[in-house]
Nucleic acid binder design. Sequence first.
DNA 1: TCTTAAAAGATTGTGAACAATTGGCACGCG
DNA 2: CGCGTGCCAATTGTTCACAATCTTTTAAGA
Lengths: 229, 229
Amino acid sequence: MARDSLETSPPVETVKRELRRAILDHRLPPGTRLTEEAAAGHYGVGRTVVRTALLSLSHDGLVTLERNRGAFVARPDPREAREVFEARSLLEPRAARLAAQRAVPADVEDLRRHVAEEHAALAQGDTGSAVHLSGLFHTRIAEIAAQETIASFVRALVSRSSLVIALYWRRHDTVCESHAHHELLAAIGRGDGAAAEELMQSHLVDLLSGLDLSDRVKPVSSLAKALQG
Amino acid sequence: MARDSLETSPPVETVKRELRRAILDHRLPPGTRLTEEAAAGHYGVGRTVVRTALLSLSHDGLVTLERNRGAFVARPDPREAREVFEARSLLEPRAARLAAQRAVPADVEDLRRHVAEEHAALAQGDTGSAVHLSGLFHTRIAEIAAQETIASFVRALVSRSSLVIALYWRRHDTVCESHAHHELLAAIGRGDGAAAEELMQSHLVDLLSGLDLSDRVKPVSSLAKALQG
DNA sequence: TCTTAAAAGATTGTGAACAATTGGCACGCG
DNA sequence: CGCGTGCCAATTGTTCACAATCTTTTAAGA
């Protein structure tokens, strides 16, 4: 169950987790500048720790590093947004099929809980958490498929999808129609791999079609102190 | 053409490239311990630079970091080896299809040169370079497909494949039958996407079948001074 | 007023010193 | 003789200080 094959030290791990969470919850909108010193002061650690965390996050595509300029929350352009979903539709349907074949009752229960939490978050209008939980659902499926390599890719892609959604989401009413997640859950629960693969595929197409990938730009919040929220 | 979306500084970039090359050429066999100080002295840089490079390489799966213990050249187990090829067979056939559809004459010429160099290396018995060039061929196809996201995954997977081959390759006569590469090249050259996809798929199956994934262990070279070679 | 250039400020890149953790080794006990 | 314990060396984890680089500001000239 090693979520990170590479073991990193607790402080840098903490900062990485916190930053990732802040970005995925959209508390740090895409384009936000992340000053090393500011983050270091905020988390009470040295700059080196923050630097390490930022380097890791940049590998996952959540942060963009510009030489001698600093780190910014990644701002995927429409082309990259399309690529992310293209890649997901290559990996996740197969993962869903495998997950359906291999899931044990505990796994299904776990997924059921995820869906429930996601539904609750949506009901409360907490879209930030909803997007996050929705991503966790997809990630969990890849993990159940017991393909650690693919799962790590899916984790990275789901993370970036969160950024894409923050930038280009069109239908503000439904975040990730939990309808699709319910059906997926059912298919996996009854071990129907073919159905799960099919459902995942169409679910991803749905997600992509919910984006507005015209070339307009969204405003960039300049201040990193959004962390305070 | 940004090979690295994240721009890193020249020194760390150099060390990273050198280390990657040494690992991919099997001059640093899997399991070799990589001491920060030793590498720093060898390349004439500070430990910080080496540390950064190692962290990057660990993200690509070429290096394993163990907390408070150090860095080692990654040693994928049979399970991980299988996963790597499973993932490749999800991504690369599609990439080959796209590459065939989008390749311009310059791209084809580039691929042709790669194949020629690979053939030459094989003829000279330089299997290290041959494996490396073979990987470059696969990577290049993903790049031609113009799917930067998928290409980055393929790069990581190809790199790990090099480790897998170092550990589990069975047929020492033919490294990566350039026969298959020639056919792929031809299919891409005539823009036949369907054929390219099919060829890539079967090529990957062939590669996997050339591995001996029984559970025996290979000896671990203890001394990192293999760099001298 | 606009353009240009230079200096000041801020931020990252790097190296060296200190602290913390780990693994090995010898010593002593059962 | 085997085994557990405590010390010691080696290596990593972290912080801090300095150098290099970039951005911004400011001021002078056309």
